[in-house]
Every structure is written in C-alpha cells, then in structure tokens.
Design a protein around this nucleic acid. Structure first.
Ligand SMILES: [Zn+2]
Ligand SMILES: [Zn+2]
Ligand SMILES: [Zn+2]
Ligand SMILES: [Zn+2]
Lengths: 158, 158
DNA sequence: GTTGACCTTATACTTAGGTATAAGGTGTAG
DNA sequence: CTACACCTTATACCTAAGTATAAGGTCAAC
C-alpha cells in the first residue's frame, strides 16, 4: 500500500498527475485511510506503468482509457474488439500516408533552398513559397486533408 | 480595399481569425475608415495567402511570424528557410516512426481477434486482453460507454 | 505543542490556434 | 424610423495533458 508521494517518486509522476488521471477516469479511485489519504496497491502501479508506456508509444490518454476499459469491462465480443482495433490501425495508416504526402511536398523546397545556398547567392530572398504555392490565393484555402496540422502533429512538438 | 468580411470570404478565414492574426502580430494593423472599419489592401491578401500556404506546409504561426519578420526586414535567406523546413521534415520522420511502432504493437492483437473470429462462435467474449493483458487487474471503472473508436484518434474531434 | 513533511480539494494557468458570444456602433434600404 | 447586415472590442471557451498555487487537514518527531 503506497501513498501518493511514494507512487509519485517510484514512477516519476507528479502527484497532481495522479489526481488528474483519477479525475478523468483513467485510474480507479484507490482505497483511503481514515484520514482520507489515498492508498495505492501494486495493480495500480502496474496500470500506471502501462499508461506511461502506451503514452510513450503515442497513444492519447483517451485511447488508453478505452483500451483499459475494454479490459476492465471484459464485456465486448471479439467482433467488437476487432472492429475497434481495425479502425484504429486504419486511421494510423491514413495518418502515416498524410505525413508522407506532406514530406514529399516539403522535400523539393528543401532541395531548392539547398541549391540556392550552393550557388552562393548571398543575401538573396528565398522564393520557395512563391514558386511552390500549394493553394492559390483566389480559391478557398481549406484543404481538408492538410488543414489540420494537429491532426498530423499529435505529439505536440513543432 | 476590402472590409474584413470580404477578405474572410475570399480567403476562407473566419473574421475572428483575422483579428487574431493581427493581435499576435502576424498581420499589420490595416487602415481604417472614419468609423473604424478595417480596410485591407492587396498586399495584405498576399500576406494572408502566404500564411495559409506556409501553414499548410506544417509551419507553426510562430515559424511563419519569424519568416515574415525576416522578410519585412529584407533579410529572409534561404539558410533560414532551409533550417525551419528541415526541422519540420525531421519531426515528420519522428512522427511516422512512432506511428509505425504503435501499429506494430496493435497488429498482433488484431490478428489474434481475427483468428478467434474465424474459429469460434459469434458473440463470444474476446480473450485477447486476458491472454496478453496490457495490465493486471484493476477495479472496473463505472463508465457509461466506450466512444466510437473513430473518435479517439489524433485529430481534434473526440 | 509546535515544526515540517505529507496529504486533501479546488481553482487557475499553461501552449497553439483559434472559435463563440455579448454588447454595442455603423451603414443602408424601405 | 426601423430593420438588418456588417463592423468593433472584449471576454470566455475549446482541446490535451497536465502543472502551479492556495488553503487547509494529518501525522510523526522533537
Ligand atoms: Zn474515450
Ligand atoms: Zn486547424
Ligand atoms: Zn530558399
Ligand atoms: Zn478477440
């Protein structure tokens, strides 16, 4: 039985993060002492370890919550689990595809800048954005597949 | 000379977005009518078009702001554009790599469910998580229902 | 019997890129 | 004169995954 500070130190998580996981339903409410102190047990630590690992894999807390609920409830058929997993994997494929398209659009610009740099045109303005417009200014600019960078940028670095 | 609504319609941007760009210093304050109405000019539209193009390439508004400030100072060099684009491409590669790892973790579960479906009666409980538990036992959370798995992805909906 | 470490809850703040709403001013047509 | 569309500002809200702080309760040691 571990108090919140002990769990925090062992797993490298802020105590506020543990409260947060409990609040959003990712962790169950642990037992309490008479004074109301939380008492975590080994299964709780394992669950927290899983969360940390899955998070490192790029799963959102909401994804992780659903995986854990699948396991907690043990109420879904193979068909239901299969459908969810399939949709998840398909969406991953779509996201990878979008990212590869985006990369393919950026690479020519990189090469052009690289060539300009090799020609030692010092001080000359870079023109890659004018020469390679992806969207013309006269038309609606909302490209459904690329507008949402956050759709592609789920790990928030950028 | 265009009012904010006209610019909004032409470029497919919410008027509030135009105010927002002005507030964060991405767009200069345009002229005003006697009544205080904003009046955008063609160079403003070109600048907004550039912003949209660069955004579609995955540059953050902060990246774009830096580029535009350099451009305003007549100092935009290929080296500076190259550095920013290269960082974006590197980040894309990292993201693709993470997603492929995640997919590799999920695929075995998917295949196991698929085999169970082919071999067993319809409606039987899925045992994937009992055979290869993601984490050992925890009290079931009283949760209403799982979302659609579709809604639990990397996009902003969910 | 007080210090200090530890725990509790609630609330606000953070980044990024906006969107939504309210309250009010302006311009024009009928 | 009055609709009504359009404009203005300020303020609050949204996601994601927390972190920071305040105000207070508990526990063991000295
Ligand atoms: Zn969920
Ligand atoms: Zn967006
Ligand atoms: Zn260049
Ligand atoms: Zn199954």
């Amino acid at each position: 039985m571990f108090q919140v500070g002990e769990v925090s130190r062992r797993l490298g998580l802020n105590p506020q993060t543990l409260y947060f996981y409990e609040r959003i339903g990712l962790m169950p409410s642990p037992k309490r002492t008479a004074a109301g102190y939380r008492l975590y047990e080994p299964p709780d630590l394992e669950r927290l370890s899983f969360i940390t690992q899955a998070k490192a894999l790029g799963l959102s807390l909401d994804d992780i919550k659903d995986l854990l609920m699948l396991q907690d409830g043990q109420q879904l058929s193979c068909q239901e689990v299969y459908d969810r997993l399939l949709k998840k994997v398909q969406h991953i494929d779509e996201t990878i595809s979008k990212l590869q398209t985006l990369k393919a659009q950026l690479n020519p610009l990189l090469e052009q800048c690289q060539q300009s740099l090799a020609q030692t045109q010092i001080g000359q303005q870079c023109v890659v954005f004018q020469q390679h417009p992806l969207v013309t200014s006269a038309e609606p600019l909302h490209n459904p597949s690329l507008h949402n960078w956050e759709d592609l940028n789920y790990d928030t670095q950028g």
